[in-house]
Computed example of a mutant assay.
Amino acid sequence: MSYLKGLLSWCSAAKPPAAKILRRNVRFALDERIPRYWYRDWPHVTRFFDGLSIMFPLGEKLFIDSVTHFRTEIETDRSLCNAVEAFVYQEAAHIREHRLYNQLLAAQGAPVEALEQLLLRRQEVGNRFTPATRLAMTASLEHFTAILSDQLLRNPAVLNGADSRMAMLWRWHAIEETEHKAVAYDVLCRVVRNPLWRYLMRCGVMLIMTAYFAVDVLYFIYQLAGTDGQRRNWRGWARLQWWLFVNPGPLTRAFPSWLAWFIPGFHPDKLDNSEALEAARRRLDEFAEPKP
C-alpha cells in the first residue's frame, strides 16, 4: 500500500527546482590503507560496491558520449547546454576517481580487466542502436543511479560501519548523481519530440537495462567473491540479500522510485531529496570547494 501511495503522489507533485550542478575538484586517497573488506569487514556487501565501481568508468564514458552527441540539437537552449557541460565535468571526475578505485581492486587480485572486457562487448552491441536509443539507455541508467544515490543520501544506515574514506567517496558520487539526474532525460525530451514514442522508448529501454544491470551486478559480485575465496560463504551471501532487501534494504526502498519511471508525467526532478542532498553537501565541504 505504501508503494501505491508513493506512486500516486508522483502524478500530482509539482516539479521542484532542479539542483544546481556543481563542479568540484575532489580527490580521494585510495591506497593500501583501505581495508580489503572496507564495509564492516563484510566481503559480499563490500564487493557489491566494488562491482559497481568497476562498471562506472566505461559506463560513464558511454553516458558522456550519448549526451554530447546531441550538442548541436540543443545549442539554442543555453540552460540545457550549461547543464550538459556540468554533467560532463562531473562524470569525467567520476571516471578518474573510480579508475583509481579499480586500480586498488586490481592490486588485490580482482579481475578488473576481464570484467571491463565484458562491458566493452556489451557496448559494442549497444552501438548498433540509434543515437536516440543510446540516449534513452543513458537516461534510464541515470535514473537507476539516482534512485540508489537517493537511498544512500536519505538513509544513513546504508553506509554505517564503512571505512570513512570509502563512505565519503560514495557519498560524493551520490551527491553528483543527484545533482545531474535530469540532464540526460531533458536532452532526450528535446531530441525525441513525439511524447508517445518517447514514453514507449524509455519504458522499454528501462525494462531491458534493469535486467542487464541486475545480472551484471550479480555476476561481478560472484567473480570478485571467487577472487576472495568467498563463493561458498553462504552466510555472506545471505547477509548481502538481507542488506539489499531488508535492512537497510536500499533496493526495496528504491522500488517505488523505479516504478515512477513508468508514470507518463514522470520527470527526475520529482524525486525531491533536497534536504538530504544539502546535508550531504555540508559533509563534503571539508574535501573540496566547488568551482564557480
Score class of each variant (00 low, 15 high):
residue 164 S to Y: 05
residue 221 I to E: 00
residue 182 A to P: 04
residue 172 W to T: 06
residue 172 W to P: 08
residue 152 L to T: 13
residue 172 W to Y: 10
residue 196 L to E: 11
residue 157 A to P: 01
residue 189 C to Q: 15
residue 141 L to F: 15
residue 149 S to I: 04
residue 183 V to H: 03
residue 138 T to V: 08
residue 155 N to T: 14
residue 165 R to G: 14
residue 151 Q to Y: 03
residue 161 G to Y: 10
residue 136 A to L: 06
residue 184 A to S: 09
residue 159 L to T: 06
residue 190 R to A: 15
residue 156 P to N: 07
residue 196 L to N: 11
residue 175 I to T: 01
residue 148 L to A: 07
residue 176 E to S: 05
residue 203 C to N: 14
residue 134 R to L: 00
residue 150 D to C: 07
residue 137 M to E: 10
residue 210 T to P: 01
residue 183 V to T: 11
residue 220 F to H: 13
residue 195 P to K: 09
residue 138 T to C: 13
residue 167 A to C: 07
residue 230 Q to M: 09
residue 227 T to K: 05
residue 161 G to S: 12
residue 162 A to S: 15
residue 181 K to H: 10
residue 188 L to N: 03
residue 140 S to H: 04
residue 207 L to W: 07
residue 202 R to Y: 00
residue 212 Y to T: 13
residue 217 V to Y: 02
residue 218 L to F: 14
residue 173 H to M: 10
residue 204 G to C: 04
residue 152 L to I: 15
residue 188 L to E: 00
residue 210 T to C: 05
residue 157 A to Y: 09
residue 167 A to R: 08
residue 217 V to T: 15
residue 133 T to P: 00
residue 229 G to Y: 13
residue 155 N to F: 12
residue 223 Q to F: 09
residue 228 D to F: 00
residue 205 V to F: 06
residue 161 G to F: 12
residue 155 N to V: 03
residue 136 A to S: 09
residue 161 G to R: 12
residue 171 R to P: 03
residue 210 T to E: 06
residue 152 L to W: 02
residue 196 L to G: 07
